[in-house]
Design a protein around this nucleic acid. Structure first.
Length: 376
RNA sequence: GGGAGGGUAGCGAAGUGGCUAAACGCGGUUGACUGUAAAUCAAUUCCUUCGGGUUCGGCAGUUCGAAUCUGCCCCCUCCCA
């Protein structure tokens, strides 16, 4: 039996590919899929207010178990009334488990069967995460969707290591599932297996047998070639059930997003749009723009003429460049609004296309016009 | 008129006889960023046909060797009259 108030309603599957349109019902409201989810690791999507998030069409927003555990601590988030109340975002939220930090903080951790020991990057304290303790933290943080604790396997990696790690992740998923008690919180299992089809298949089958509320595809977009990533998606989707949400973790460039949707993925998240925005790189209908360039010094046109976001409706490239060069935080905010809105509007277009069975044409058109060789 | 201090690459600023085509910062250019240790990081920034060439206000010297020492000249800033 699934989480209370949580289920995916598939309304249409594109006749020509795996792309699906639907509604994800959550305790904090219904959202359409496919969906791009902004990342708010520390209970804030860096530089943006919840009102701004809403204005760009955000649905689910992520937060991070590892980071919120370190600061301010899950007890404080719980006392605040849960992460949504804490950060004043009334839409659905999801917590990543810290499995990505097992990968990204590799030099600072040690993995055993029991769990993972981290050296805090903030103060050097030793933190022990187990599949059970992570669930406990995620329940206190209180997002609508929690992730199982996993190991995000690096790339490239040997078959032997991928097998060992994936089987451990499967055992961890079971332990987390058994520990999970919060009824109005969904729990997703995370499919690992590296680039190996038999491992992906085995992982999916075992997770599906446990009956999670949804399934994530992990270990992607960590430096592997594009075709390897698409393979990993295929290997997982092939064996996943139709009626549960599928979440492709960590993809944020147009090509990955659209190829994921074509393969039947419902949810995607990524720090890319917000991070590169802070670094002055913008995704636009004209291709990739780096706002720091001197050529924009006296460019009084909008960043993206075709974009309907607050930034593009009200400000010029010259002003954005000025803010960036002056290290003014308002620039990071305006550009984060834009990049998120750009991606979300592309995904909105994808939803409309799926309903009309023309997603593949839509994808090819978008990729031809803005994707790939234009650099994002 | 008298006195003092200066003129170094786009800008600011180190350097005060060889290890200096010249630190460092800014500015410029190019790139990276994908379940956020990231408003971060990397490369490059006199010219070059990549062999080399021309530099530290100008000219002339001293020296094996000068941005660095000497002489003259030009310019700038400040103080006193």
């Amino acid at each position: 039996m699934g989480a209370k108030g949580f289920y995916l309603e598939i309304l249409h599957v594109d006749k020509n590919c795996g792309a699906r349109y639907g509604i994800l019902h959550t305790p904090h409201g219904d959202v359409e899929v496919p969906m791009f989810m902004p990342v708010g690791t520390l209970a804030t999507v860096k530089t943006l207010s919840p009102e701004e998030l809403k204005s760009i069409g955000s649905g689910v927003v992520l937060a991070n178990t590892y980071h919120l555990h370190l600061r301010p601590g899950e007890d404080i988030v719980q006392k605040a009334g849960g992460v949504q109340k804490f950060m004043n975002y009334d839409g659905p939220m999801l917590t990543d488990s810290g499995g990505f930090q097992v990968f990204s903080l590799a030099e600072k951790r040690k993995i055993t069967e029991e769990g993972v020991t981290f050296k805090s990057h903030l103060n050097g304290y030793t933190i022990k995460f187990t599949p059970e303790s992570v669930i406990g933290i995620e329940e206190k943080i209180g997002a609508d969707i929690a992730m199982s604790f996993d190991e995000c396997i690096p790339y490239p990696v040997s078959y032997e290591y991928a097998k060992k790690s994936t089987e451990r992740t499967i055992r961890w998923a079971k332990r987390g599932l058994d520990a999970h008690k919060k009824e109005d919180q969904a729990l997703f299992g995370i499919v690992q297996g590296g680039e190996f089809e038999d491992l992906r298949k085995e992982c999916v089958e075992k997770l599906v047998a446990m009956d999670f509320d949804g399934y994530s595809i992990g270990g992607t977009s960590i430096g592997e070639p594009k075709d390897v990533c698409f393979k990993m998606i295929d290997y997982a989707v092939k064996y996943l059930p139709q009626d549960k949400p599928r979440y492709l973790m960590g993809v944020g460039s147009l090509d990955y997003i659209l190829e994921g949707i074509a393969r039947g993925v419902d949810m995607m998240d990524c720090v890319l749009p917000t991070r590169i925005a802070r670094h002055g790189t913008l995704m636009t209908h004209e291709g990739r723009i780096n706002i720091r360039k001197e050529m924009y010094k006296e460019d009084f046109t909008p960043l993206d003429k075709e974009c309907d976001c607050y930034c593009c409706k009200n400000y010029t490239k010259a002003y954005l460049r000025h803010l960036y060069v002056s290290n003014e935080s308002f620039g990071a905010r305006l550009m984060s609004i834009h990049n998120l809105r750009f991606l979300i509007s592309i995904v909105e277009g994808a939803r409309e296309a799926i309903k009309e069975d023309r997603f593949l044409e839509y994808k090819d058109e978008i990729l031809r016009k803005y994707g790939d060789k234009r650099g994002f």
